[in-house]
Design a protein around this nucleic acid. Structure first.
Lengths: 156, 156
DNA sequence: TCTATATAGTGAACCAGGTTGTCTATCGTG
DNA sequence: CACGATAGACAACCTGGTTCACTATATAGA
């Protein structure tokens, strides 16, 4: 059952591909002790990385308002993935850091994604997966977290 | 700023590819007389065009609740893309049909997607675009509108 | 040094697009 | 013809965004 709009298949397959990977990631993360992690969280935690960030900084990186970033940090803090400390050099700022539990989620995500990628490579061939990523790199913005559509991040 | 998680690039590129196409589609649709059309609407209208005729039916096709489908139909009706008529054979049912304005939006979407696909083919080569779609078809669900994740549709 | 401006974080009100639960009207079958 | 299934609508709620408004702090300039 194909679409009535021929050109529609390309964007749809890209979306479905993304969804398939993300859904399987979170199903597996749930089994590995991270049942509360949502797709958004992975992106945010990656943006936080091992370094220190603030809500404003994070919002800028992800392309959302500082308030939205702040809300997400609230959630992440509540479920134990990040912690906030006051910046001694600027008492307005609150520095966000990953907790060990947060780092664990990120490390496991990496392993799961590798496994999924290997599964795709098994079906398509490793060179096809590499080609797909290489091709997409040519037609998408260079900076992973930058897309000038406000709120694009909500697509998770 | 590259990701700390190596396997993360594949899903992210898929998402970015989708977003790039959808964003350009809607920018161009806005210029062509459809400024109020949202990414969701294209999916819903396509489902309607393919024969999903009531809210319940539409919800089933899209994998969302009948209430969610009903809300979306309300919006689409208000901005003139669809119209509801009562089914003479079953007065409980309200049959949803595309208006000419709705058909126009769908036709224009098709042309714009074709143009965008050609742009990609110009950068990557037509055979690479074909290969990408073919590969993705192998690793994603066969039915375009079926993904067993409830609410996946909200990813637009 | 003091003042003006910029910045960090927070709260509130709002929106979109989902969810579940409940209710009514109608259909269709045993 | 009664009863179970179905279609639609309404309400309350959730999540993850938005903007506006505010406080507290930092910093640059007269």
């Amino acid at each position: 059952m194909s679409s009535d709009i021929p050109g529609f298949e390309l964007p749809l397959r890209l979306l479905l591909g993304f969804r398939v990977l993300i859904d399987e990631l979170h199903a597996e993360l749930g089994r590995q002790g991270h049942p509360d992690m949502r797709p958004t969280h992975g992106f945010v935690m990656q943006a936080i990385g091992r370094g220190s960030t603030t809500a404003v900084d994070l919002g800028r990186t992800l392309g959302v308002s500082k308030q939205a970033a702040g809300k997400t940090i609230d959630v992440l803090e509540r479920i134990g993935y990040v912690e906030r400390t006051v910046d001694p050099h600027d008492t307005r700022r609150k520095i966000v850091r990953l907790t060990p539990y947060g780092v664990d989620a990120l490390v496991r995500s990496g392993h799961i994604f590798e496994t999924l990628r290997e599964r795709w490579a098994g079906e398509l061939g490793e060179e096809r997966v590499q080609a797909m990523v290489a091709d997409l790199r040519k037609v998408t913005p260079p900076d992973l977290f930058r897309l000038d559509t406000p709120g694009w991040f909500g697509t998770l």
